[in-house]
């Protein structure tokens, strides 16, 4: 497997108001010197506490902002802006409320310049993939949270990007819907062979989905450790979360995330 994405010593700072001095401004480091790479077709999850720079990192990967220092390579080329080689799924769905499920999916097809006569078949295909074929003509406000997120996933897949960037896409859903969507995402991933970078603050989710889990720590956001998850056949085992391998991996990630708290606690 080749290297698809390389995050090369990336730092991102923002200029913010200085709370100590009225009217003054200072630099705030959201991401500090991050370095990791993602393999072609890999499912990588990134987990970390709130405010550790996860969304900032995803914006950089999406080309919606640029690193202060360092660079990000996609297929060896530096990312300079947004592109349809990457599809993004946001936590709050970000569907266009004036378009139906199908219309939302076709928005991406149009952006890619796909001829109009092919839209119907393609949107049908992706609606089918996420199990929403009979909801094609519903507006977002007529869909449940889980359905909305399925539409958002279908929209991002429809213009056929190489990489899928997902920013806590299931965080707003109830536990049951979340588990269903997690396994559906795995199924879609196996079917489409996309490279997926999936951000979450849920440890279970990170371990269940990721072949590797990147663990971040906050203030400033930096990589604490990257853990391999040796689980095979996640979909075959209905209750994989009780599997000893899963439990072990989960505990390892949990310990890494909570290390700092303990260090504080026992001193």
């Amino acid at each position: 497997m080749g290297e698809k994405i390389k995050v090369d010593r990336v730092t991102k700072t923002f200029v913010v108001r200085d709370s100590d001095q009225k009217g003054a401004r200072k630099e705030f480091t959201a991401i500090s010197n991050m370095e990791f790479s993602v393999k072609e077709g890999e499912f990588l999850t990134i987990v970390g506490p709130s405010g550790c720079g996860k969304s900032t990192l995803l914006d950089l990967l999406g080309g919606l902002s640029t690193p202060t220092k360092g660079r990000i390579l996609l297929d060896g080329q530096e990312i300079k802006g947004p592109g349809l080689d990457r599809g993004t799924v946001f936590q709050q769905y970000a569907l266009f409320p004036w378009k139906t499920a199908r219309g939302n999916i076709e928005f991406g097809l149009e952006a890619k310049g796909i001829p109009k006569r092919e839209w119907r078949a393609q949107s049908d295909h992706y609606l089918e993939l996420v199990g929403l074929k009979s909801f094609a003509d519903r507006y977002p406000h007529e869909l449940s949270g889980g359905m909305k997120q399925r539409v958002a996933i279908a929209r991002s897949l429809a213009f056929n990007p190489d990489v899928l960037l997902m920013d806590e896409p299931f965080a707003a859903l109830d536990a049951q819907t979340r588990e269903t969507l997690q396994s559906e995402l795995l199924r879609i991933w196996e079917k489409t062979k996309k490279t997926i970078i999936f951000i979450t603050h849920g440890i279970d989710e990170a371990v269940y989905l990721g072949q590797r889990v990147v663990i971040l720590s906050a203030n400033p956001g930096r990589i604490k450790k990257i853990v391999e998850i040796p689980l095979k056949h996640r979909l075959a085992d209905a209750d994989i979360r009780s599997n000893p391998e899963f439990v072990k991996a989960r505990h390892q990630v949990w310990s890494l995330l909570h290390e700092d708290e303990y260090a504080g606690l026992y001193i």
Partner: peptide, 27 residues
């Protein structure tokens, strides 16, 4: 702003952004 971000992530032109996102969202 999330809608704008979402549309921008699909690399659409400023004109399309205006015509296909800003305008309908403003109605």
């Amino acid at each position: 702003p999330l809608l704008i971000k979402s549309a921008r992530s699909m690399n659409i032109s400023s004109f399309s952004l205006f015509y296909k996102v800003i305008l309908p969202a403003s109605i």
